[in-house]
Simulated assay, not measured.
Amino acid sequence: MAKEYSFLKNFTFKNGVTIKNRVVIPPMTEVSSFEDGSISTDELKYLQMRAGGVGLFISPVANVSENGKGFEGELSITDDRFIPGLTKVASAMKLGGSKAVLQIFHAGRMSNSKILRGAQPVSASAVAAERPNAETPKELSNEEIEGIINDFGEATRRAIQAGFDGIELHGANTYLLQQFFSPHSNRRTDKWGGSLENRMRFPLAVIKSVHDAVEKFADRPFLVGYRISPEEIETPGIRMTDTLKFIDVLANQSIDYLHVSMGYAWRTSLNDKSDTEPLILKIKKQLNGRLPLICVGSVETPKEAAKVTDKGIEMVAIGREILREPKWVQKVENDDEGSIRYTISEQDLDDLGITQPMWNFLIFRLKSAMHISNQPDYNPEQFKNKLAPHEGA
């Protein structure tokens, strides 16, 4: 008989959606869409292989605006013509009873004119990101801001019509929602910037736009999640005091869960080395039961997953390990933990549904963390005290 792990228990959100267990596939970049953002058969195969075991499956991100694309091979939800393909995505992700959530975003300054086919990236302010070859973005006008807010609402309508069980707003990893909240990327002096309250205004307006779309178009309980990065390393930048105040506001919004993006689940502050309390526990304390949490970051084994949910954190996300072992949950449920794969071989990519573009992305950004079978393994705590590359650094 399988062990009675806490993460195998079901969970019901306040809006009535029930997931069969508390294991989540987080949104992972797989750079396998067509150039225009349409779904490819390779992506469908990848999604189908990983559906069914987990309770909640969050898709790779889809852009909501024409100037919101962040990288090649990215899904798009900018137009109704994408709904038929996204319907196939939702169906693939729901195979076997997983709930399917579509993550949506606008990349903002985390793009470039090549990806945008000659257009200048946009952001809250004309401030370049502190990374190599970053382009200075164009500051968005008030009219353009309102247009993007509307785009998020329209994207939510399309996700509902495509059959998803929810959407997740990508307010993490230095993309546009975070750019408006950050004092580094937002130097505005109008109602969209300046004070902490003003820097919250854009993400809160997006949440309202999404909520209005759910109220108008959803004929079933529909999840709305929000993903955050708790800190930035830039100066000025987001610090935990700002984040905890933002979380206090988010807890009272029309959202169903909060997803905390980190490379290591138990990471402590990147900026205050004297503070040894894990950030996820600070956030849990601030929420005080008002919203369920998803915790992610280098969780691989059942013991590590149980450590998260045993602490009262509602859901645990398993990313890179699900790439290596698509049947992770099923093997745990069937008392077959000994057969779980914790390494990946380049010879098995086809069997795992991993495309060559996705593999190239993984080994460029995360090679030392992928547990490649015939190469030296990585330090398992490499993301414990620093920002991981997949967090937007």
Rank of each mutant, 00 (worst) to 15 (best):
A2F: 10
A2I: 09
K3T: 10
F7L: 05
P27D: 08
E30D: 11
V31D: 01
F34E: 06
S40Y: 00
D42A: 11
L44N: 00
K45I: 10
R50Q: 02
A51N: 01
G53L: 05
V54N: 00
S59I: 00
P60Y: 01
E66N: 05
N67C: 03
E72G: 11
G73P: 02
G73Q: 02
E74T: 13
T78W: 08
R81D: 10
G85A: 13
V89C: 14
V89H: 14
V101E: 08
F105A: 15
A107R: 09
A107N: 06
R109C: 10
M110F: 15
S111W: 04
N112F: 02
N112K: 02
K114C: 09
R117I: 12
G118L: 03
G118M: 06
V122Y: 04
S123M: 04
S123K: 07
A134V: 14
T136L: 07
P137T: 04
S141K: 10
E143L: 12
I145N: 01
I148F: 02
A155M: 01
R157D: 08
A162E: 06
D165A: 10
L169M: 14
G171N: 10
G171I: 14
N173W: 13
T174D: 09
L176T: 09
Q179D: 05
F181V: 12
T189R: 15
G193F: 07
L196T: 13
R199K: 00
M200W: 06
V210L: 01
D212V: 01
F217M: 02
R227A: 04
I228M: 07
S229Y: 01
P230E: 04
E232Q: 01
P236K: 07
M240Y: 05
T241F: 13
T241H: 14
D242S: 11
F246K: 09
I247F: 07
N252D: 15
Q253Y: 12
M262S: 05
A265D: 01
W266F: 09
T268H: 07
S269M: 02
L270M: 02
S274T: 04
T276K: 07
P278W: 01
N288Y: 03
L291W: 04
L293V: 02
I294E: 00
V296G: 00
T301Q: 07
P302Y: 10
K303E: 15
A306C: 11
K311T: 13
M315D: 12
V316M: 05
A317E: 12
A317K: 04
I322D: 14
V332L: 05
T343F: 05
E346R: 12
D348L: 08
D350V: 12
D351I: 09
D351A: 14
G353T: 13
Q356L: 13
P357G: 09
N360M: 07
F361S: 11
F361V: 08
L362W: 03
I363T: 14
L366R: 13
S368D: 15
A369Q: 12
D377N: 13
Y378W: 12
N379D: 15
K384M: 12
P389K: 04
E391M: 13
